[in-house]
Simulated assay, not measured.
Amino acid sequence: MSRQDDEEREFDLRWADQAEQKEPSARARMLAARWKENPPEPVPFRGEPESAGPRRSSWVSTVIVLGCAVAVVLVLGYTRFPGP
């Protein structure tokens, strides 16, 4: 590109950025049309996930993980070192 092309392109970008009205994107137009007929319901900032089950305490989770680890160690220990 020549220097003149760069200057013309820069001018065009400045001219476009200074436009008083900008055309919305296709997605924005689609959502505006959809929401005009059927507005969305308000959603809390951090809503609870719908698929979450009852929450366990951190101690219960820790006991479950440690219990599984001990069970695996015991199973591996007995299978590798059979009795006399």
Rank of each mutant, 00 (worst) to 15 (best):
M1C: 13
M1K: 11
S2P: 03
S2N: 14
S2V: 04
S2G: 14
R3C: 09
R3M: 10
R3V: 09
R3Q: 09
Q4F: 10
Q4T: 08
D5H: 12
D5G: 09
D6K: 14
E7L: 13
E7A: 12
E7M: 11
E7C: 05
F11A: 15
D12W: 13
D12G: 12
L13T: 07
L13F: 12
R14L: 07
R14Y: 04
R14N: 06
A16D: 13
A16S: 10
D17P: 00
D17C: 10
Q18S: 10
A19S: 03
E20R: 11
Q21C: 13
K22S: 04
K22C: 05
P24S: 07
P24L: 07
S25C: 03
A26K: 15
R27K: 11
A28M: 06
R29V: 00
M30I: 11
R34S: 10
R34H: 10
W35G: 02
W35S: 07
K36R: 12
K36S: 12
K36C: 09
K36F: 08
E37S: 11
E37I: 09
E37Q: 13
E37M: 09
E37T: 12
N38H: 01
P39K: 02
P39E: 02
P39T: 01
P39L: 01
P40G: 01
P40S: 02
P40W: 01
E41S: 06
P42M: 00
P42D: 03
P44K: 03
P44E: 06
P44L: 01
P44N: 03
F45E: 15
F45M: 14
F45K: 15
R46W: 06
R46D: 08
R46S: 09
G47M: 04
E48N: 08
E48K: 11
P49K: 07
E50H: 13
E50R: 15
A52F: 03
A52C: 06
A52M: 00
A52S: 08
G53P: 00
G53N: 04
P54N: 01
R55K: 10
R55I: 01
R56N: 09
R56D: 06
S58L: 10
S58A: 14
S58Q: 08
S58P: 08
S58V: 08
S58D: 04
W59D: 01
W59V: 03
W59G: 01
V60A: 08
V60F: 04
V60Q: 05
V60R: 07
V60I: 14
V60N: 01
V60P: 00
S61Q: 11
V63T: 03
V63A: 09
I64L: 12
V65M: 04
L66I: 11
L66S: 09
L66G: 04
L66K: 07
L66M: 12
G67A: 04
G67W: 01
C68M: 12
C68A: 13
C68T: 11
A69D: 00
A69T: 02
A69N: 00
V70R: 05
A71C: 05
A71K: 00
V72A: 00
V72I: 07
V73E: 00
L74W: 10
V75Q: 06
V75L: 12
V75T: 03
L76G: 05
L76S: 04
L76I: 10
L76V: 06
L76K: 03
G77D: 02
G77V: 05
Y78H: 08
T79M: 14
T79S: 14
R80G: 11
F81I: 10
P82F: 00
P82R: 03
P84Y: 03
P84Q: 10
